[in-house]
Computed example of a mutant assay.
Amino acid sequence: MRIAQLTYSTKPRGGVVHTLALAEALATRGHEVEVWTLGRGDDTAFFRPVDPRVRVRVVPFPSLDGEGVGQRIERSIELMAAALDADADIVHAQDCISANAALRRGIPVVRTIHHLDTFTTPQLVACHDRAVIEPVARLCVSRAVSREVEQAYGVRPEVIANGVDAERFGGASEPSAAGARERWRTQLGDYVLALGGIEPRKGSIDLLDAFALVRDAHPDVRLVFGGGETLFDYREYRERFEARAVELGIHPTVLGPVDDDALPALVAAARVLAFVSTKEGFGLAAMEALAASTPVVARDLPVIREVFGDAVLYASTPAEIAARLDEVLRGAAQTDTAGGVALARAHTWDRAARAHEEFYAHVPQRTAR
């Protein structure tokens, strides 16, 4: 089968990680796979090497000074649509930008809806809604999000859960990787880790408030934020975050994007992963942490309950988040490390690829042109 996977960025966001891992798993299973993406700024390749069996097509997307979010979204769609000439049986978009690009070219497209967003920018609202309504087939990575889509749009996507590279993250917790973990601990000391950058959806300010409640009991523990690449302009939220940190007297360490090779050790060396997003589609970063035997404190959301069951500690408010963090840092938390590892290892990309094969075979309108 000839399969084109579409994504909007070369950066290590969850949907991009999903795109590459799925493409590689499908190629391993003998399919002819190419990945289309936008190369923002000077990017000419993805954040990590890609299996050479997968053809990578990077569409140049030069930066423009003074461009607003809506203009950037529209230009993203236009440039990808103009370049897109995928000769494939299935064209599968992993986000609303790439889905809109395919639709603008008149290409029947499959869409994975990782989660629903609420936007106010008109271009984003239109992009988001069209990319749910108009694809010929839809997927979600959890039942909870599929139900949300059905309630909001009257269509119910099928569900294929994410995979996770459990072997890579699990290896970071092995004795052979002690040196890599120690390098992070030498740099950061003991730390609570949050991944995904500083964004409203990641609950970053809630985590600041929670950390303020536990720092006196754990004065040697640092709050660390890793990751953070996005199309959207979160400067206002970042300013509120920084003002709140000053008000609380907290000095978080903000690493920004972390090299892909260094990420597993960063996760494995953390005392706990704080995964307090207000909205998620699956929770890939939390699953990677479980694979690395790192405890997870997660926001109590239906999707997290569905995917993780009893493998994580749940909290909703900053006070509850603080209480769960304190339990982990004191060594008093009841966590099933072995069960978490087993859960992560059960979510393989090969299993996900097999499920996608079956799904593609029943797409009502094949996308070959």
Rank of each mutant, 00 (worst) to 15 (best):
L79A: 13
D85I: 01
G106L: 06
C127M: 15
A93M: 03
P122H: 11
M80Y: 11
T112P: 04
V54D: 08
A86I: 01
R105Q: 11
V59I: 03
V91L: 00
H92K: 05
R104E: 03
N100V: 01
T118W: 11
D117N: 14
D89K: 02
T118P: 00
D51K: 09
E78H: 13
H114L: 10
L116T: 10
E74P: 01
Q123N: 09
D117M: 11
A86V: 00
A93W: 00
V54E: 08
Q123S: 14
S76W: 03
V56K: 07
T120H: 13
E74F: 03
V125G: 12
R53D: 06
A99W: 00
Q123P: 00
L103H: 10
E67L: 06
F119E: 15
V59A: 07
H128Q: 15
T118C: 05
A86N: 04
L116G: 12
A83C: 04
R111S: 14
T118N: 13
D129L: 01
G70P: 04
S63H: 09
D87Q: 12
D129R: 15
D117L: 11
L64C: 01
A126C: 02
T121D: 15
A86L: 00
I73W: 05
H128R: 15
P122T: 10
N100P: 00
I77K: 12
L84V: 05
G66E: 03
E67Y: 08
I77P: 10
R72L: 06
C127Q: 14
H92R: 07
A81D: 09
I113Q: 10
R105K: 15
P108N: 13
M80N: 12
A88I: 02
D65G: 09
S98A: 15
P108H: 13
P52W: 01
M80R: 11
V58L: 05
R130N: 08
V69F: 12
G66R: 11
R55V: 07
A101G: 02
D89N: 07
